[in-house]
Design a protein around this nucleic acid. Structure first.
Lengths: 232, 232
DNA sequence: TGTCTTTATGACATTTCTGTGACAATTTTT
DNA sequence: AAAAATTGTCACAGAAATGTCATAAAGACA
């Protein structure tokens, strides 16, 4: 149903894994991190639409983490969950734009009820973001525009847009040709492989301008392509 | 600004009055009740858009109260605030459709932050403005007039107005032909593509007078048009 | 009624997109 | 090492969408 990327940051292994499994059963694409450092890496990997953050982490505070995430991805749903029932902290979290703040102990059901409520109200926004960012690439789907690593903004055609959106929704994952065709051309249309390759050529023009060379469209022979950010 | 009717149910006099004053300062029309009985009366009196309920009341539970209110007024925003940090109760409250659940102690700021967030998501802020501005373009929808980059004011026809309004509501975003037709002509009318193109021609006459050339109507092939302000 | 505006449409030139083939480069298989 | 399969890239042509003008129908207004 959803398949939204979700980052779960929780240092207590037991709780973390329980939550992860539970959220996966709820059809989220969950990555679990146990430290701030790991959280940063995985944040860049999956570009989560939702982040559930423990506040007390071994190498830092979830609040600081949230602040960083906010800068990168404005529309990411932030949710704190912590044992500290400290009014000051709660205010700080909410001022940061956190969607919610759950105090331990809580029941799994409470978490999902709160999540459901948030997601319901933001369903449209989550699936129609104004801006998508990946490395130095900025993409504005509603504007049909992209900004490459050099800062130049260029218009995109309908198809270019659709393909780029696919790649950014599934960043770092391989998207097969069949999936592209089905989701963009529809089942009744059968473009040549060359057609897709050509759009890849075009998209590479933008991706390659990330001068660090960390953003790449890689071909996976016989399957399809992936847009990946290396070196994090 | 808001002046929304709000029912506050809190039996502790000190906290109740503080909250009431604070919320009044925030431009809510607040009624304070200290018992379930009083709450029922005042609920019927003011028909609140928001109800903030303490759970532990002298003559009953805020949860039961909420259940009654829900039946009468489905769209009322319910917000529990209580000293009991009981996961079971929280779940019960949220299942009832409560918008949020605050645990004491909390800061006033937290309450308003949460309120703001809820109200924002319900978009109480919608209104139709007298004046819309974009770049050097001024548009007065109620007067059917536009002022272009040269300062000249011109009258607009009904359709010109409607289309311009759409563009200004969604500035910088692509508006599809279908959206325009649906929102302006209605679903039963099927104007030719040429029809829309021609209105675009007319609107461009105004947009192009922004001599800096930063205001433009751009076509996105196969989709529609966008009115964009470049260089900002 | 006659004039003026609004609205819708058609004709035609122009632009842009899109898909494809040709061929080179690369990887895999034999 | 050669052959086969896949992918990278370019250029091109047909198709489709758009830009623009002229024009006709339908109202509005005096």
């Amino acid at each position: 149903m959803f398949n939204l990327p979700l980052l779960l940051v929780e240092d207590e292994p037991n709780l973390g894994q329980t939550l992860r499994d539970y959220l996966r059963a709820k059809k989220f694409r969950v990555e679990l991190a146990t430290t701030c450092a790991e959280a940063r890496t995985k944040f860049n990997d999956i570009g989560p639409a939702v982040a559930i953050l423990d506040i007390g982490l071994p190498d830092g505070s979830g609040i600081d983490l949230a602040r960083e995430f906010r800068q990168v991805r404005k529309d990411c749903v932030l949710l704190f969950c912590t044992a500290l029932n400290d009014p000051g902290l709660r205010v700080e979290g909410l001022e940061l734009g956190a969607e919610d703040y759950i105090t331990k102990p809580f029941e799994l059901k409470e978490l999902t009820l709160r999540l459901d409520r948030i997601l319901k109200s933001r369903e449209f926004t989550l699936h129609n973001p104004d801006e998508m960012r990946f490395g130095k690439l900025y993409f504005w789907p509603k504007r049909f525009e992209i900004q490459d690593g050099t800062g130049e903004v260029s218009p995109l055609s309908q198809k270019e847009c659709a393909i780029l959106e696919l790649f950014l929704e599934r960043r770092n994952e391989v998207v097969s040709r069949d999936e592209m065709i089905e989701s963009i051309w529809g089942e009744n249309s059968f473009p040549t492989n060359r057609t897709i390759d050509n759009y890849i050529v075009k998209l590479r023009k933008w991706a390659d301008t990330d001068l660090t060379g960390s953003l790449k469209i890689t071909s996976v022979r016989g399957i399809g392509y992936k847009l990946e950010l290396k070196g994090h």
